[in-house]
Computed example of a mutant assay.
Amino acid sequence: MKPLDYIEMKLPAKPEYVGVLRLTLSGIASRMGFSYDAIEDLKIAASEAVTNAVQHAYSNKETGEVEIGFGLYRDRLEVMVTDHGQSFNFQETQSGVGPYKEDSLEFLREGGLGLYLIETLMDEVEIHHEEGVTVFMTKYLEGEQVEIDVKTLST
Rank of each mutant, 00 (worst) to 15 (best):
V54P: 06
L42I: 12
I28S: 04
Y140S: 11
P3E: 08
E144N: 11
M122I: 12
D83M: 00
G69F: 06
L108Y: 09
E126W: 14
V66W: 00
V133I: 11
P99W: 15
S59I: 10
S104Q: 12
A57P: 05
S59K: 10
K101N: 06
E130K: 05
M80F: 13
Q86I: 07
A29C: 07
H84P: 06
T51K: 03
T120G: 01
V81I: 10
S30E: 14
K101Q: 11
F90E: 06
L77T: 03
S87C: 08
L72H: 00
G85N: 09
E131M: 15
L115A: 00
A13H: 03
I44L: 05
L42W: 02
S104H: 10
P99I: 07
G114T: 03
T82N: 11
T152Q: 15
Y17G: 07
P15L: 12
A45F: 08
R74Y: 11
V50P: 04
V81P: 01
L42D: 02
G64N: 04
V150Q: 09
S104V: 12
P99K: 14
I118N: 01
E16F: 04
K43S: 05
E124Y: 12
F70W: 06
I39C: 01
P3L: 09
F136Y: 15
D37S: 15
E78V: 14
F34L: 05
T155F: 15
I68D: 00
E131T: 13
M122K: 07
S47P: 11
T152W: 15
T63P: 05
D41H: 13
